[in-house]
Write a protein that binds this DNA or RNA. Structure first.
Lengths: 114, 114
DNA sequence: TCCACGTATTGACCACTGTCGATTCAGCAG
DNA sequence: CTGCTGAATCGACAGTGGTCAATACGTGGA
């Protein structure tokens, strides 16, 4: 868990100074944005995210069935989304509870010209 | 070029009925959204997109230098972005001119809860 | 017609990633 | 302490994707 908790999202708030359509991105900005978008660019993770958002807080064990994926696979995807800062997890007892980080999604939209 | 022109973006306008954070996505919606996001989830393509957006219209030959990529690689990335509907190309003489499709980016933002 | 130039395609290589079975770790109940 | 349960990690596999050299295609000029 120490490792999982050490999952810091590098929450530098905004993902790039300006939006993609306003000015050419630097390599560093492009790499950072691409990293977060890669976390979103997977159908399983998109559905996982929408499942968590639908109920404000979801236990890992309640994700295996709707996603039709094994427990290690679900754990992998939650880790990826958490590293991207899109969800945050809290361990209560034996269960891991996840909730979305709306600010992060908003930052992505802003980077995309929102 | 016929092949390149045949690159249809499956422009079904909106990418999913509702935004990711409003309701659980169906597998089909998730797959479609993930496909478009995959096109964006690459630092080279993000920089390519921003370069095109910065000048409203750009020739392929003017992308190799700023991206520091070979001509086949640039061609590959423009094809991927075009298939995702994010840019559109027009061949004039020997040159291929690209411009962004702002509506497509807006659709992505909407799908992300914009 | 032939040549030069810009672009697209092919083929190959390597790195990365999604997936799962097996295992290990952590917290709770008895 | 022991056993049970939920989650994270490991190891391995298959599939995908970015890259470039080489080649093919198409257009315009000489």
């Amino acid at each position: 868990m120490a490792k999982a908790a050490a999952v810091e999202a590098d929450t530098g708030k905004e993902l790039c100074c300006t939006s993609v359509i306003e000015a050419p991105l630097s390599q560093a900005e492009a790499a950072k944005l691409a990293g977060v978008l890669s976390a979103l660019a997977d159908p399983v993770r998109l559905r996982l995210l929408s499942l968590v958002a639908a109920r404000t807080e979801v236990c890992s064990c309640d994700l295996e069935a709707p996603l039709a994926k094994s427990q290690p696979t679900v754990s992998h995807h939650t880790t990826v989304l958490a590293e991207a800062g899109l969800i945050v997890g809290e361990k209560r007892g034996r269960w891991m509870w996840w909730r979305v980080e709306p600010d992060r999604l908003a930052a992505i939209r802003a980077a995309l010209g929102g």
